[in-house]
């Protein structure tokens, strides 16, 4: 029953996202230019990191190769999440204008309908760029590959992507309750992407608390990277947390589901 619903949701997502891609492709010049700018934006982020390392050999005790690995893991996770569900942020104008109603009169899960209908292909540019960095960084980093580490890498990417997806859905759900502060979502999504690209211990303690306990973004890259790169952390974190990313992912999904449903309920009880 649940499996069937997931299969139906995925099939609908594919259908609707493909339609959106075909629609966007009608405006080829804009499509190509926006795609190029997406790739450049993400390349620029990494160029920023590279530039910093022209002035210093390490950052918080981590070398360029270590930070590049961290960037790759965070970038692939956040990039995939942005690619798959990032368009959920389009909820804000839809709720404001009442067009969200149109999503509910289709026999499709409302979240699937929204994210797929606003699917933005160019976001794959971020994934591709981060993947290149990750592959190169993994190749050049001196990682002592054990079975555990080999398994940990894909597990980290999957967990990180799930955590990032949940972050997008949770922050977008704000739009159901108030239309005014929706952009704050970007602080957690794109800001989260930026913050998780650097070693957590260089940040102020309140920022560390925020990305560890309030939104558990530290599970996306930093904690698993400690294990894979075999690095020490100056922070007093229990060592089992390095393996807890899948748990954090499950917890985030539970929260995201509850928040989204509460939002939908609120929308349906207040109207547009």
């Amino acid at each position: 029953m649940v499996g069937e619903r997931i299969r139906a949701g995925l099939a609908d997502y594919r259908t609707l996202a493909a339609a959106k891609l075909r629609s966007d492709w009608q405006y080829r010049a804009g499509f190509v230019a926006m795609f190029a700018s997406t790739v450049l934006v993400t390349a620029m982020d990494f160029a920023g990191i590279a530039v910093v390392f022209t002035k210093t050999p390490e950052l918080g005790g981590w070398t360029f190769r270590d930070v590049a690995f961290l960037y790759g893991v965070a970038g692939v996770s956040f990039g995939l999440a942005d690619f798959l569900v990032g368009s959920v942020e389009q909820i804000s104008p839809r709720v404001r204008t009442g067009v969200f109603d149109m999503l509910l009169i289709r026999p499709v899960n409302a979240l699937v309908n929204l994210t797929a209908s606003e699917f933005t292909f160019r976001r794959v540019g971020k994934v591709a760029q981060a993947l290149v960095v990750l592959v190169v960084a993994t190749a050049v980093a001196d990682i002592e590959w054990t079975l555990g580490r080999i398994l940990m890498l894909p597990l980290t990417i999957v967990s990180g992507t799930v955590i990032a997806c949940a972050t997008w859905v949770i922050t977008a759900s704000i739009a159901f309750f108030t239309v005014e502060t929706q952009e704050i979502a970007n602080t957690f999504t794109y800001g989260g992407d930026l913050a998780t690209s650097y070693p957590l211990h260089i940040f102020e303690s309140w920022l560390r608390v925020l990305v560890t306990y309030i939104v558990p973004l530290v599970f996306v890259s930093y904690l698993p990277a400690l294990y894979i790169l075999d690095l020490e952390t100056p922070l007093a974190l229990p060592s089992w947390l390095r393996f807890a990313s899948p748990l954090a992912a499950v917890a985030m999904v539970v929260v995201a589901r509850a928040v989204w449903r509460a939002g939908l309920r609120h929308y349906r009880s207040t109207g547009s």
Binding site: A11, T15, A19, R22, S23, Q26, M102
Partner: peptide, 22 residues
């Protein structure tokens, strides 16, 4: 006042998409 068709695609495509969704 609101469309449920795919604005930038040929009309035929909207019907085909609805066939899949329904």
């Amino acid at each position: 006042q609101r469309t449920q068709l795919w604005w930038d695609l040929p009309l035929r495509d909207s019907f085909d998409l609805l066939r899949a969704v329904y």
